[in-house]
Design a protein around this nucleic acid. Sequence first.
RNA 1: GCCGAAGUGGUGGAAUUGGUAGACACGAUGGAUUCAAAAUCCAUUGCUCACAAGGCUUGCGGGUUCGAUUCCCGCCUUCGGUACCA
Length: 1064
Amino acid sequence: MQYDFRNIEEKWQKTWAERGTFKADNTSDKKKFYVLDMFPYPSGAGLHVGHPLGYIASDIYARYKRHKGFNVLHPMGYDSFGLPAEQYAIQTGQHPKNTTEINIEGCLDDEGNILSKYIDEDESINNEALIDKSKPVTIYDADYRDNVIKGYRRQLDQLGFSFDWSREVRTSDPKYYKWTQWVFIQLFDSWYNTDSDTAEPIESLISAFEKDGNAAVKAVCDDDTPIFSVEEWQAFTDREKQELLLKYRLTYLANADVNWCPALGTVLANDEIVNGVSERGGHPVMRKKMTQWMMRITAYAQRLLDGLDTIDWPQPLKDSQTNWIGRSEGASVSFRVLPLAPAEGGDLNIEVFTTRPDTIFGVSFMTLAPEHELVTKITIPEQKNEVESYIEATAKRSERDRMADVKSITGAFTGAYGEHPFTKEPIPIWIGDYVLAGYGTGALMSVPCGDQRDYDFAKHFGIDIPNIFEGIDISEEAFADKEKTVITNSDFLNGLPYKKAVKKAIAELEKLGQGEGKINYRLRDAVFSRQRYWGEPFPVYYVDGMPQMIADEHLPIKLPEVEKYLPTETGEPPLGNATEWAWDLKQSAVVETKLIDGESVFPLELNTMPGWAGSSQYFNRYMDPHNEDEIYSQDAITYWQDVDLYIGGSEHATGHLLYSRFWQKFMFDRGLVPVDEFAKKLINQGMITGTSALVYRLRLSFKQTDIIGNVEEYLIGFDRMLKSFHSLFVSFDYVKMELGEKESIKFSDNKFLKVRDFLEVYNSDKIDLEIVSVSFDKVHAKVNLVDSSDKLDIDGFKNWQTDYSYSHYLRENGNFTVGREVEKMSKSKYNVVNPDAICEEYGADSLRMYEMFLGPLEQSKPWNTAGITGVHGFLKKLWKLYHSGPNGEFKVTDINSDDNVNGVNTSSEPSNESFKILHKTIKKVEDDIQNFSFNTSVSTFMICVNELTGQNCTSREILEPLSILISPYAPHITEELWHKLGHAESISTAPFPKFKEKYVVESSKKYPISFNGKMRFTMELPLDLDKQQIEDAVMAHEKTQQQLDGRTPKKVIVVPGKIVNIVG
RNA sequence: GCCGAAGUGGUGGAAUUGGUAGACACGAUGGAUUCAAAAUCCAUUGCUCACAAGGCUUGCGGGUUCGAUUCCCGCCUUCGGUACCA
């Protein structure tokens, strides 16, 4: 019997789905275990082999935990709001809801034929069903299925994951985003009490105001919050009260800097901006202030830091969150702006944050971010032009550019001066783009002798560099070593080391009332508004410009329909196009926009929520995903608690993973979740890169003498020079052999004789120019046109790119090979490998095993389909091991079996060797799974099956546990074998085999005998010898004497059970 | 720039605590089987030298150690993140 993976996999996938094998129950006596994957954004391109890597790993772990007797929750869903669907909507007018649904559910029926609703009258396939929408496809095209969207669900299903699909969520489903909106309202209705260090309902803040005003309230709030008394509070109008409360709420409105692109009418992400212009269309981009919803994540800065110590996440990921939060201790210092500055001058102060208050006497200038609000106020008329043009120039640079660029030093003098708090000397105030507006206060006290950037700035603009470090030469560079610091030229700080000087400086500043010790965080409040269509609408309407929440019972507020998905002509977000987008208070319903009267009908919020909104609580929603009354029941969350294992990419380190921790802590504060970290353990899976196939196209450079005798040399595509044929492609083997490491080679070097021959035969009469050198272009070929030995299918290549149909192909030894390069998997590089095709050819079990076999889970690694034959061959061998009967029939022997073959009882005890390899495998695999080292498990299985095959093992006692060991990795084949072994129940809950030490104990060891650290020979010795006995045995060995050649060893190192090393 | 990760045969990788470098695979070469192909099986395969003996070898340069892929110092290269891509 052959290993028929197609039938086996289809059969068991169907059976699992029908039986609900992987449904997790919210009530169970078993211990719970929650394995979570980062849910995908369902893109039209579908899955490539890189996507399932983490899902396979988590599935192995989930299945392993089921074998270990746990009640496992392993859900999957879709992060289905996002930009690509919106971009497509802008281009085609297709509703993102429809494209999203297609991307998830696909366009094929159960037989794999396209659904009739996607076939147009003329039998062509509707554009929305196509992956590559650039050219028309009809149902008569032979391979139309390759270009039809199969849908994420179908692609995931065929990989045999043990997901509990009954719990699926989609962030764009109103039933789901109802609860995203609900959490937003909870945040709006909360403030952060720094006394109790917890978020509290806004009512407690209001009652505090009503009792004592806000002077005594310890809260996280906006910097510009005024102090008011009870009387003042009571005298405030309702609107004033609302404005004040906004300064405390955990989500609030504020003016934030964004990258505004006037031409596109939209805000751009940093990576959508290249060299100061938009990536799409190359339009100018400006920094601009816009009113945005913000999340007061800074309230949680310290707790987000502290929490990192309590979770088992990768250290690099923790490091990046730590750096992101960026805690620094120092002092805030207030500098008076000297009144000789013009206009409003006089009472202006500049707040700076410094980590080095000890260097305050080294200040020789101040630097403000060009965006700093005081810049326009303090700039003197003479400097106005210079300052303004500088501000304009920096507005065009992205923050990342400004941070990355340390070489060009730019800035402008405002003409204004600050006053040193102690010396009262005037300090010139500059602006410079190395100061970022959102970082600290957006202003620096510049100490050139102690900070390299300040030093460079001072040198560049000829500003003083006073030295305040004892015994340090600062003529070449700044001195930033805190440990070796001794302060001098600094009045009361003279002679003090760093730590004492800091303390003293802060104390003196406090005496003056011009500063205090302060902890600063780099973390900023998160912008929560997006000027997009395809996102969660806010449950917010505006009365007199003040935001009001819509009551819980009216949620969800569903996304309105719009004609166009672009911003409006007046620059409002796409929701501004909606004709039905107003809140009627009386009816408690969304009504037509034109009914807005400011009395009972009010405008709704036009922004939508960002991508991370929907993913910040989804892990909790999975626990009770269809609950319509609560975000989840308390029973469900009490049972499941938190995620035990979360697998996903490290690119989410400071986005999703930080925001989710913030929301979880908030939910914890409000008593909605039992723990304040949502995932105990997290593993980052690496990227799978593509292995591109590159075909080498000849380029020749020619020399030509023109009429007046100038000699010109130029490089030209061969095809353009010679009309008689198209490009000449040359086998990579030959190119490499002739070219070596060089890029190009002189024609006179007498290489590439084959090319010369070729030119002579085909074009001798056409070449009237002198060839100078030979080089090559690399052309990407589709990877599936290349086989495991890098040979190109030339006919396939010609068919695929008809431009090359008439090209010539120069072979080497009858083969035409391509070069290989590892690059990111992408459509444009033709190196994307689709899991469907792999499943079709080798099966899901082979794909799962191979993805694991590629290498360590956390590392990025290149995909090369060629290698899959190794694991596929292994599965065939595994199958054979259980099918050693006549004609490949299934055969397993029991110890007490009555089986008789020709009168001989075939029952047999497994051999000691069989037990040994089985138990070695159990030990290794269990260790591997616990260490997430899945690649080494696959090797271990191979060794085990190879050995058992060699031993002709057929014992149930061996083969039954073996199938369980392999089943997390290759669930289909092992389920089939399990079934054949006579079990009615799924293998998935069979108990994991127990490792028994007694089967693997060794009595002797093959010792490596080294001389001066180099292994020369091995020697088998009993393990119970002591050091001296081993030494004696080794010294007595003839090869030892041979090696020593008469010398006496200086020293003999014996490590029992490990090695012997003879020195001398 | 800053932060993080990784460099081992032709390729993916293994070596769990400092102890036989290259497990397990892919590819390649030769052979068996076959009318032939596929499939399967066997042998060889880090480099170097004609063989053997030997020498060299974990990105580069140092160091610690009886012994370093592993620990320390200094460099180089590639990749990821860098606040509106998801």
